[in-house]
Structure formats: structure tokens, C-alpha cells
Design a protein around this nucleic acid. Sequence first.
RNA 1: GGUGAGGUGGAUGAGCGGCUGAAAUCAGUAGUUUGCUAAACUGCCGUACGGGUUAUUCUGUACCGCGGGUUCGAAUCCCGCCCUCACCGCCA
Length: 424
Amino acid sequence: MLQVNVLRQKPDWVKERLAVKNFNHPQLVDEIIALDDERKKLQAAYDNAQSQINSASKDIGKLMGQGKKDEAETLKAEVATHKTQVAALNTQMTEVEKNLHDKLVTLPNLPSAMVPPGKTPEDNVVVRSGGDDNIQLYAGAVPHWDLIQTYDLVDFETGSKVTGRGFPFYKGRGAKLQRAMIQYFLDFNTAAGYTEFIPPFMVNEASAYGTGQLPDKEGQMYHVTEDNFYLIPTSEVPLTNIYRDEILKESDLPIKMTAYSPCFRREAGSFGKDVRGLNRLHQFEKVEILQIAHPDKSYDVLEEMTHHIEKLVQSLELPYRILKLCGGDMGFTSALTYDFEVFSAAQQRWLEVSSVSNMESYQTNRLKCRFKDANGKTQLAHSLNGSSLALPRILASILENNQTEHGIKIPQVLHKYFGAEIIS
RNA sequence: GGUGAGGUGGAUGAGCGGCUGAAAUCAGUAGUUUGCUAAACUGCCGUACGGGUUAUUCUGUACCGCGGGUUCGAAUCCCGCCCUCACCGCCA
């Protein structure tokens, strides 16, 4: 959620930035400012009326103490008229505030000055890449969904029977490889100073709201209606909400967290080759990194996180590229996003395995996650997060790229976790 | 799930329905003293939204788990919900 003050101070700049994100309702900015003006007026009137009630009440108390009942009664009558006023102003104010808020949350985060213009994924900019995506597979090479069957690593059919499409069973060496990767990724992250968490896999409504999943992305989450819990679409949700309604010390920053969790996504409306095999699932495993940072340093932190993830991807010996997302392809809450893609040779496709974003204060404003700066002023912290990494597509890419006639070679860094060098 | 107790500022913890935005202590912070540290003493030390002034400061309103109610007036009384703790039940 953007801060109203920013809109008030620089409305034209805000509109220009929104346009970069292909947000086509600039008039909303003016509407919000007008509503905020109204809100202020109502508040002044309300405060004034309430103040009169308060002082009259004190007088009544004194008069009663002195036994002047008649005078007290006249004052009471006066208070009664103010009270109807206050009630009316209060309902008006609530309504205006709700209206203002409802409009405000429809504004996406403003893209940073570094965001390239553009509307579609074709407009994203490759900033770095590594490894060789010109992989010569042997003659019998097949896509991962076939390899999975050959080596009995993942069972989609039984997953469909037991739960539904997109909820596979990982099995045998497939399950162990997942566990090995989780372990390795977490070790890699904690070695860089991230504190490890195992978060709750369901959150309450306030948390889903806090990180922005509600109200706009309600349909993408699984909802446990009986208890009003939401299954987390990413551990970002519980982790970030740790700091909801908190005022931190400046010396606490940056806060670095990492967590493994399953991620649950309904992904309504996807189909075709995008969802084949491990490419897109309703439940998948992911290790996440997240930082709460000082506003002055959040872009350095973003670079640091990006390099961290890059090293992790490199260590897996997968061809990758890092994209700086254009305005039109960025997430709603992000100010700058780098996507990591790995090349999956049998599909001849780039698969997104990580997305690293600086939300600046968009998320923390809604969360009310602040810190006291050196001057004793409270200001909003910045939040950043990134996957490190999403497992299924990494698995797909390892399987496809490393297949040989003798079996699937496991990346060297995973040997000690997996306990073998090849799946054959 | 049942019964009981309780939820107050960073922490501990007071608070006859008006003088309580809230005692006290600790922590924190600025300073004085001391050769340094320690100690002692002094000041400051919640958040949000307004208004006037603006590197300052003054002022209004709201907030004592959350939401309602009673009252001229609620941290204080009543109702509902949430959470914590203890005991019991169930259980990986």
C-alpha cells in the first residue's frame, strides 16, 4: 500500500511512475487526495465536537460534586446534542476512510527508476547469464516427465487419485533428492547469515492481508473456511508477518530470514504445456530468503540477495539467466524485480526458479513494520524477498540437462546430501 | 473439547466510574560527577490521525487484547469474540 503523503506531495510523479507499470487509472490519484482532504475535514470537526463533550463531562463531574444538579442537567442536555453530531461525523468518517483505503489498495507499488519500460515478458532485460544453454543431449534424451517415470521419482497419477491434479507424490530417490536440495539450500542461506525458520503453513486473515494476498489475490489461496485460515502461497507470508505492527531499532536492521515451506497455489486458469510435469503445481517446495532492511540500503540489499541466489544457482551447474523485469511484467507489490530462469534442455525452455524483489515500503506500510532512526523518528522499513530456490523446476532442469544413457548425474554440491552421484 | 485464572506502555507491574495516557521499578537514552570502568544523581523515554508554528515547540482526538453496550463521563461496569496460563480430557 502506498503512503497517501507521497501522493499528496508528488501526484504527477506518482502518475508517471504508475504509467510505467501500465496502470491506467491516473485519476485515482486525484480521487484519493480528494478523499484524504475530506477525511481531514471530518476529523477536525469530529475532534472538535468530541473535545466539547469531554470538557462538558468534566464540568458535570465538578457540578455534581458541588451539588449543583440543575446546572449539571442543562450541561447533560448540551452533551446529548453533541453526541448525535459526533455519531454522524463518525459514520461519515468511517465511510470516507474505507473508501479511501479501498482505492488506495488498488494502486500497485511504484516501479523504481531502474525498471525498464515495457508491457510483456519480451520486454524484460537480461542483466546477466551463466552456464551454457547450448546443451548437447544424447540421442535418447526425453523431457523430465518421462524421466520421472523411468526412474520412478514422482507419481502424478497417485497424487491425482489421493488429492487432485498438481499434488504429486515424490517417491524414493525423487523424495530424497528434494530433501537433499532443501537441506543444501538452507545450509547455503544460513551460511550467509540468514536465520532459519520453519513457519506455520497456514496463516490467519490478518496476516494474509498484511502481505497483500488479501483482498486482491483471494482466489489464488486455499482457504480453510471453518477456521478462516489460508494455506500459505509462500513462506514470505508468515515470515514477513512476524514484523507486523512492530517498531524495530535501527540496529536490528537488516533482519535476514530463510525458511523452507511447501507452497500452496490454486493457480486457477492455467493449462497446456505450462502445467506439464513439474512445471506448475498446486503444492510445491520452496526455500525463501527475506530481509527487512533500512530504506537507504534496500537496493544494495537487493543486489546482495541477487548475487547470493546467483551463486546458489551456479553451484548447481545449471545454465541460467537473470532478468530485470519490465514495468508491465512486474508483480503488483514490487518496486524492482529480478527473475532467475534456468534452462531445461529437453523442453528447450527457460523455467523461472526465483524472483527477487524489493518492495520498498509498499508491504511494510500495510504491515506497519517500522523502525526508529538515529533522530528518533519512526519510519517504514523496506522489505525484500526472493526464492532460493523453488524446487520442482530445479529438479526438472537437473533431470533434463544431466541425463545420460547411464542415468542422471547429480550436481556435485548435492552429493553429500543425496548420498549418491547418479540416479540410474 | 471442559473448568478456572488472566490479558495495561520495551519488560515487570499498580490502577474507589471523573483529578489516569496511565503510579512504581527495570531496561533504554541524554547529561552531571569520577583519572577509566562501575556507582550515584538529573532530564527524557508509547502509537496513530488532525490543527497552529516549524531543524524547535504548543495543542486537539483516539487507543489499557478485539468488537459492541451502559453512562454526562469507562482501563475501571455489562455482553460477545480472540489469545495466554493452569488443571482435566484427547492425542503425534
